[in-house]
Design a protein around this nucleic acid. Structure first.
Lengths: 196, 196
DNA sequence: CTGTTATGCAACAATTTGTACTATAGATTG
DNA sequence: CAATCTATAGTACAAATTGTTGCATAACAG
């Protein structure tokens, strides 16, 4: 039994995925092939086929790599507006300035026909939702938001709009927009006390 | 000079695009090829290549066909909630029950790397936004919404969430959800009077 | 040092994508 | 109706893509 994996395996996987991710960003999914990754890395085509037997496998790995290339840190110190701007700021940065932003539309499309990719997105989204939910719950426990407010649709709105702008509508995400978006959501959350 | 196009051209284009759309829905983009459309229609492969010289052309035509396969009728009789439910109901039906819903994720993905497809989506979205904007403007002129409310972010929210649910998060769109979504937006629109 | 395992290389097969050419069937014009 | 375009069907072919296989070599583990 071997404790550590053969370093050759690790090196091959690492370099190949680095190159795949770069190709994915710069030239799109179609540019990610065993041949192109081989050319970019010097790794033999047959070795790449050993690691990723099909094109589908190779591209899926690149997707996974892109999806996990970003980090997201929750924050629930309050006030709600500050927490949401922190969280969404991370999301906006990820969409604007990391591989994920370039690649996400292609991953979303792949998810439409591929269940594995769908699963990647789902896990991903559940995390996003959870962090935002925690911010709302914290706001509730501070009394900032009434305890009987249903925050689920609010969470959805917070997250949906930036994704929609970036991935579907092709609109920009800047800090000014982010501020007004969060402001609107917060107003909705706190004014629901009166509406009830 | 010929007044009408050769009926053979029209017939070929029509039948080929019908088949392309069906393949697109049932088996995804990758299933749309000159060979598969030829097999499905009986049209010669060489004839298909005459009409659509590259695979890209063929698939793009299928996308366009899918995007224009739906109709959307505006309505501004008021009250706002009724108008929005009508508009979003059309959108939800389109996403759930027409080719567009099956195909939209793939079109969105293609838009990420193809400017022509991007243009299709943009036109498409502008129409959606315009219809919703008209509903809000009508509500303003009825005094239902204060005249100084900025409706742009509201429009975005109304539209973004159903698209996000369907295309990105893979969540269902049902009538019950629609109702509560519209309700939230309307509350936000009408309560902004007080907030000002 | 010895056996194991990953890699590199080359040859090859099958499929896909696109081109070129010819004959034929269908449409348009006078 | 006849002559003339014009689109399509069919075939053969070229090039690129997507894998597969076998073998020599180099790197790793015990």
């Amino acid at each position: 039994m071997k404790k550590n994996e053969d370093p050759r395996l690790i090196a091959t996987r690492t370099h190949a995925l680095d190159a795949s991710l770069q190709l994915l960003q710069e030239e799109g999914v179609l540019a990610v092939t065993h041949a192109s990754v081989s050319a970019a890395t010097g790794i033999s085509r047959s070795t790449l086929y050993r690691h990723w037997p099909t094109l589908h496998d190779l591209r899926n790995s690149a997707f996974l790599r892109a999806a996990t290339s970003q980090v997201f840190s929750p924050k629930t110190n309050g006030p709600l507006k500050t927490d949401l701007i922190w969280l969404l700021g991370g999301l906006v940065t990820a969409l604007n300035d990391t591989p994920w932003g370039q690649v996400a539309p292609q991953v979303v499309a792949a998810a439409a026909t591929d269940s594995q990719t769908r699963a990647v997105i789902n896990t991903f989204m559940q995390d996003r939702f959870q962090y935002v939910r925690e911010a709302f719950e914290a706001a509730k426990s501070r009394g900032e938001v009434a305890s009987d407010v249903d925050v689920t649709p609010l969470i959805e709105m917070v997250i949906a709009v930036p994704y929609f702008r970036k991935l579907i509508a092709g609109l920009p995400l800047d800090h000014q927009w982010l501020e007004s978006h969060v402001d609107l959501i917060c107003r909705l959350a706190t004014e629901q006390q009166a509406a009830k």
